[in-house]
Design a binder for these strands. Structure first.
Lengths: 208, 208
DNA sequence: ACGGTTCAAGCACGTTTGTGCTAAAAAGAC
DNA sequence: GTCTTTTTAGCACAAACGTGCTTGAACCGT
């Protein structure tokens, strides 16, 4: 009966506009009017697909989380398919960890958006649930990776969570610096830091 | 001749109001009206001490940087006064690194404000200079610390910057998680992660 | 051809923001 | 007391925001 448009595709276009605005102008500029302009739509049209500004932002947050989590799962599967200790395995691990960093244009946008939403979620309670989901998803992958990488296979519950959190913190810190101080933080430094961290992960099982 | 008020003290009071607002409601709520209310002043009064909203924010950023840098220098002096390897030395290092984290109420406010400004500086060009100054100041202290802690005393320029950046990333990541996911990130986990990192710093000089 | 439903667009209202400007109040100097 | 300068307070305006609501346009099924 009605005019038929692929509603989900339209929503996705709007979300992409949100991403571009956040990456270039920050989350606070992601207003309905700005998003509508960026998506070449009218405000009323955007509001037809998203009941409110909050819903648009929450959904955008969810999309970026799913994108990142999807890449992580994919890269983790690659790691699992390789022999621990082999050079390919090491490269696959680096590839996995690189999914967190703004190493190319697409990753940079996602990293920007992800960071912006996570920090906004500290204040904006509507984003709280998605932020928790994001944290759980990422921590799960990193936890499984650490379990696989640690010499004793991750026996010692306490030690495992410490190392998982340590890797997670390093990743988020690297991502932050790459976004905020790109002139000081090259892709090469990122790789060196990650390699050094991986060395430390497999090299100090006994002390403490 | 005029009514005499300690202008610098008044400015400081206003800055404290800015800090409280950022910590509780985020940077985007730190408008002139909100700040004036929080400081129990009128908008015109705040504007008498700060020519514009930008100047107020830039100055607030500068103040929080100086506060953090001051604490770091103090804690670093304590580290320098102790024998490397001693238990007191290790404790002093942990105290130094703890200055980055929201371990008590005052540190939490500063960490909040610092994070907010650094992220805002990616977009708001008026904050760019202070952000760079902040990065230089902190990187200098961490660099000196790493030079002191590494087994070979930091010979090997490349290796040193990698380890400095690695420690810096871990610190910022820990700080971020402590601010954003306080329920998962306790002070104990922070301490464990930092201890593990320090172990890795002194324990892997030879490989690579 | 036409009716009904969805999509697109926009108006209008109340808030909030930064800022230019004005003006009253306060208090030491004379 | 009077003057001068700082301090405090506030008004007014344009801009931007989210949102309730209304109005055309588009289009599929009949």
């Amino acid at each position: 009966m009605p005019k038929i448009v692929d509603a989900e595709a339209r929503r996705q276009e709007v979300v992409e506009a949100v991403f571009r605005i956040i990456a270039s102008d920050g989350l606070e500029r992601a207003s309905l009017r700005e998003v509508a302009d960026e998506a070449a739509l009218a405000v009323g049209s955007v509001r037809h697909y998203f009941a409110s500004s909050d819903e648009l932002l929450v959904h955008s947050f969810a999309v970026v989380i799913d994108r990142i989590a999807g890449r992580l799962e994919e890269a983790f599967a690659a790691v699992e398919s390789l022999d621990p200790g082999s050079a390919e395995h090491h490269a696959a691990v680096l590839t996995l960890l690189g999914q967190f960093l703004p190493l190319d244009e697409e990753l940079a946008v996602d990293a920007c958006v992800w960071m912006a939403f996570r920090h906004a979620a500290r204040i904006r309670l509507v984003l709280e649930q998605e932020a928790a989901r994001s944290h759980r998803a990422v921590a799960a992958v990193v936890g499984r990776l650490v379990m696989r990488l640690m010499p004793d296979g991750g026996s010692g519950q306490e030690r495992l969570v410490t190392e998982a959190e340590r890797l997670l913190a390093t990743l988020d810190g690297l991502c932050m610096h790459a976004l905020l101080q790109p002139e000081w933080m090259t892709a090469e430094v990122c790789r060196d830091v990650l390699t050094a961290h991986l060395d430390s992960l497999v090299a100090l099982p006994s002390n403490r």
